[in-house]
């Protein structure tokens, strides 16, 4: 009995503390300017949509959303495209220097962004990628590859090798085996990797700040970080933009919670 009460308190407290702070932004986004600026500020909103309208039309919110969708989408596709064969080869085939490659990837995943920021900027400057969406996609792919490859390789290793061996005996080459046998079996693992890459690319701020300087190219995090009004901080529009930026993530998390939990804890168990 005592245990059940303790559990109930625990559930209530963790859920409330997780959700309530953001609820203040949700409430704010539906307020009017006078309700925000009242002293004291109003608790409950009157349900106005003005801030959403103004964020969309006066604060480039539409551009930010579009850019974030393009950047996060292409990062995910490109990173998976590169990570799947690499992970398969590292998990199943004989490559000289396998341990070295895995160690280098692990090392890259620990890099502080600052350690590569200046040179990446110079590189993109030389390639003409500054202020282009593809200019952030390239470093994003490089920085998500280690996680994706580790995750997928450990997933591939857990698949039963018999099917692949049978395909091999029947004359299927490594590429054919990967695409016809392994890939269909590995969809849950690929899905997990895709979600984690997508969330990373949707949320990344540092490189986007350096590389994208025009609102027409900027992603949601940059737009929200640099949000400014003419005279005062436009908290209402900012709250509306934040809700728009976060809503898809809340959907993903609630729907894909199981895959995220397994993906994030995969590293911990094998550690």
């Amino acid at each position: 009995m005592k245990r059940r009460i303790l559990l109930a308190v625990g559930i209530f407290a963790t859920v409330a503390l997780s959700l309530l702070p953001f609820l203040w932004f949700v409430l704010t986004s539906f307020k009017s300017q006078t309700e925000i600026e009242a002293a004291p500020p109003a608790w409950w909103p009157s349900g106005s949509l003005d801030f959403y309208r103004s964020a969309l039309f006066d604060h480039h919110l539409f551009d930010y959303v579009l850019n974030s969708v393009v950047v996060a989408g292409s990062t995910t596709l490109l990173a998976l495209l590169l990570a799947i064969p690499a992970a398969y080869a590292l998990a199943r085939l004989t490559i000289p220097g396998k341990q070295g490659i895995l160690a280098v990837l692990l090392c890259v995943s620990m890099f502080p962004q600052m350690a590569i920021a200046g040179p990446v900027w110079r590189l993109l400057d030389a390639l003409g990628g500054l202020n282009h969406r593809w200019g952030v996609v390239l470093p994003y792919v490089a920085l998500t590859l280690p996680l994706a490859i580790w995750l997928l390789a450990s997933f591939f290793k857990e698949l039963p090798p018999e099917l692949e061996d049978a395909a091999r005996v029947d004359g299927c080459g490594p590429w054919g085996t990967l695409f016809r046998i392994t890939l269909p079996l590995a969809t849950p693992g690929i899905f997990t990797a895709a979600i984690l890459i997508l969330i990373y690319a949707w949320n990344e701020f540092f490189f986007a700040l350096l590389i994208l300087t025009q609102p027409e190219q900027q992603t949601l995090p940059v737009g929200i970080a640099l949000f400014q009004g003419e005279f005062t901080m436009p908290w209402g529009e900012l709250a509306a933009a934040s809700v728009v930026a976060t809503l898809p993530l809340i959907g993903v998390v609630l729907l894909c919670q199981r895959w995220i939990v397994s993906g994030l804890s995969a590293g911990a168990v094998k550690g």
Binding site: T14, V15, S18, L19, P21, F22, W24, F25, I199, W202, N203, F205, L220, P221, V222, I224, A225, F227, L238, S242, A245, T246, L249, I250, V252, V253, L254, Q257, I260, V261
Partner: peptide
């Protein structure tokens, strides 16, 4: 899922919040 929401929120949004 609810507990994961703060983790999924962009850090920039959490900072402004």
């Amino acid at each position: 899922g609810a507990i994961l929401i703060p983790w999924a929120i962009p850090t920039v949004v959490a900072s402004q919040l």
